[in-house]
Design a protein around this nucleic acid. Sequence first.
DNA 1: GTCTATAGGCGGATAGAC
DNA 2: GTCTATCCGCCTATAGAC
Lengths: 207, 207
Amino acid sequence: MRNNTSNTESQILASAEKLFIEKGFKGTSTTAIAKDAGCNQALVHYYFRTKENLFQKVFLGKFKQLFEQIKVPLERETDFFSKLENMVDVYFNFMIQNPKIPYFIFNELITNPRRRKQLRELFMQKPHQDDVYHQFCASVEKAISQGVIRDIEPLDLLMDVGSLVVFSFLMAPIITDFLDLDQSHLTDFVDHRKREALTLLFQGLRV
Amino acid sequence: MRNNTSNTESQILASAEKLFIEKGFKGTSTTAIAKDAGCNQALVHYYFRTKENLFQKVFLGKFKQLFEQIKVPLERETDFFSKLENMVDVYFNFMIQNPKIPYFIFNELITNPRRRKQLRELFMQKPHQDDVYHQFCASVEKAISQGVIRDIEPLDLLMDVGSLVVFSFLMAPIITDFLDLDQSHLTDFVDHRKREALTLLFQGLRV
DNA sequence: GTCTATAGGCGGATAGAC
DNA sequence: GTCTATCCGCCTATAGAC
């Protein structure tokens, strides 16, 4: 099965990805995408018809990429504190390698109700993706009944981990400017936050 | 000292505040502001010259309002766990009453380097506002040396609290749509998150 | 102070030649 | 498939009458 996608088309998609992630939907023009892709603006519309269409493709693609990463530590069957450590580890690493993705996805989901509906439909179509969550719930409940961690709702645990991981990254650019940090100090900061997140979670979940 | 500000001017400012917070800088036109304020678009520029100018006024005003709230529990001198409870309480309450402010400020600080510089200059001009932070640091270090809480850097503690509070609110609209919650269930959710945040912090900070 | 009118630019999208 | 040219709408900002 050969690849039907032309070079130009994939180049436009790549440029769109870069610019949408950097400047958001409203901050990116199809003209700018064309310029970055090295073609003219009409071609953007030739391949994707509308800007909205193109954005949707980029957004869903990035979300899937993120979701694939989120899944992994939720499924793995180990002792609960290893799972927790694994979650924090995997999520922090993903963020370090894709620092702008979380804000990109967050921003769109918060500001655009349509995007939330699209995502919801995506999950409805593939109900087996729900299994990841149910699997996670089961392992949390098991850990509780075994007395490994205190009583907590699985969604809360997910929110706790999410808060501590994502917030550090949302704050990173602000912290950098405010404290006048350079890149290496910023890496230290993020690494420091990772350790603190783990400490707080480990200690805060004990019985 | 009488109020020099005309009704029209303050009406424009009020409309700008409402719309900027709802739809952001790029999503709001001076035409829309004028329409909402019940005047024509030229008046917006008559009073504030540029859109950027007007936005700056709104942004700095809202930030000051937020900062005034953040200050309060940091300054109060009580036992440390009361301080912590007070922080979570005050911050959650502010968010409930102004659910869109945190995102508004966050979004601008993240996407716009100019805004970060403006804010930094604001703090440079008023170095006594730093005192709030130093006061907080002192009380954290005191609590550590007295063995009330484990060893932790004050900035980390602030980040921990911030993460748990802000993230819940950023997620609120997403959660609502995904789980099909109505307004009253959303209030329950936030309230629930508040309790979990307190539990995690209290337990995670013990020696 | 408040209005109308308009300049001048950029946006998305399409038509039509090649 | 790729290009140029162009339509049409919305935007910010200003000029000038009242």
